[in-house]
Design a protein around this nucleic acid. Structure first.
Lengths: 257, 257
DNA sequence: TGACGCCTACATCAAAAGTTATAGTGGACA
DNA sequence: TGTCCACTATAACTTTTGATGTAGGCGTCA
């Protein structure tokens, strides 16, 4: 049973939307009371998944939309012989399951990397949201577009960057996203918790595990980054940016549903 | 000057939305009169681009949304040394420029493959559409989600399929899309017009031109497909599907804005 | 009609990435 | 406290893919 029991007792259980810890971060655009109440009413449940568990099977249609409240997860597709491609990583604030609503069949799986807690929104209420709150509908499209931009970037990596460049771009991108969420430790060189294994990195970048290991160590030996005790430190952001041609853009506030 | 002159005289110039040739295809969900009128009012212009011209530069923010009315185009990202990754191909009915509305900067370029005609919608009217016509807003999200599904599939190809598998998946996918639009010639083995060069295929699949050529000929020699006189024939769909693990799903009607 | 450019075809060699095998490390757990 | 297991590290070798060079076909256009 992947779902955590006694979710309500866990410190990272999503509370009422008015108490949402995530929304307190200035990473997200403010919403008015009416919108917040609508979101709260639309949310049917909370769900917890333990690290490594499957949130959605690849061949299964999602029965709901989810917003990641805490933890890291990823979307993936795979081939029958086990080859797996991670499409993008999901961090707090990311929406899960929108594609399914509009596709002709199930298209991807979702796995938890760390323990993950989710806010659950029944699929059938999505249409109501479009009807009743156009500004929230606009936000949903925003989140969809932002996810596609992430996938686009990852496609540029797997298609045209070499192994070191791919890794540099991924590390920068994840570091930027986590920092934007306020997850960076300013007392420790801006380090972020980094729960990915080399296997995740390999599957996200279309590399073999061994080659990922080789290339990671190369960057590490060159002093560009440091992964230690489950945390990532970007030691030489300029060099990583030059190498990958991935440049941090100042990130605006984004919507949170 | 990439834009075609005297667009209104061309046979493929988008007419009034009530006369839209594209909408006559049963590939698209019907809309009611009010919606159609709203779309017509929202459309500010028509635009034509000649084959090979640039519809949107990579470092330029789009000033409008476009719907492809006729022709083929593609979205791409590139690196400074010229490496280019095609993100997805755009066929009639596809929406261009949605990502830009929600991103912090320009993210990708768009080039015309064939002569292309577009319907132009001013960006600032997008918000009005969300406010005034929630069903059309829903359609916009639908189109965004569908595009991401295409990019996801392409990412699986570049990340985890080998050269032959990638090509097989791409050929099947493009053939399916064109056929759904009613562009297949039932009197010629279901062939479709195929304007891509091997260079396009290479850039879409993250392969070199040479290796693309090698792999294409391999599939061709095995009798799986045929590209001749600018047309593509799928000779052995079952074998291509087995090879690529890309399976055609029956495609529902999709929205058209 | 002939020059030009774009596209395709193909051979050779080089580099990047994948495969296999082995071992060390450190946490989880009995 | 030792065993197990997931993760990381490394070497040796193979395969895939890319780079370079060369040539032929074919349509465009002056």
């Amino acid at each position: 049973m992947p779902k955590l029991r006694q979710l309500a007792n866990r410190p990272d259980c999503p509370p009422a939307c008015t108490q949402c810890e995530l929304r307190k971060s200035d990473a997200f655009s403010p919403v008015n009371v009416g919108q917040l109440r609508y979101i709260e009413a639309m949310r049917s449940d909370r769900a917890g998944y333990s690290a490594g568990s499957q949130i959605k099977l690849e061949n299964q249609r999602a029965k709901a939309l989810f917003t990641v409240y805490s933890g890291w997860a990823f979307r993936f597709k795979s081939l029958s012989d086990g080859r797996r491609q991670i499409l993008n990583f999901l961090l707090p604030g990311d929406l899960i399951g929108l594609q399914e609503q509009f596709s002709d069949g199930p298209s991807h799986g979702v796995d938890a990397i760390t323990d993950v807690t989710l806010c659950v929104f029944p699929l059938e209420k999505l249409w109501d949201l479009y009807r009743d709150h156009s500004n929230l509908a606009y936000s949903v499209t925003w989140l969809a577009a932002r996810e596609e931009i992430n996938v686009d970037e990852n496609l540029l990596s797997t298609g045209r960057r070499n192994a070191s460049e791919r890794i540099a771009a991924l590390l920068l991108s994840l570091h930027r996203r986590a920092t934007h969420l306020g997850l960076a430790d300013i007392h420790d060189r801006g380090s972020i918790a980094f729960p990915l294994t080399q296997s995740h990195i390999a599957d996200a970048l279309g590399l073999s595990l061994i080659h990922t290991n080789r290339s990671l160590r190369k960057l590490h030996r060159a002093g560009l980054h440091l992964i230690e005790a489950g945390r990532l430190v970007i030691l030489n952001p300029k060099a990583l940016e030059r190498l990958s041609e991935y440049y941090d853009q100042p990130t605006r506030q984004v919507p949170l549903i």
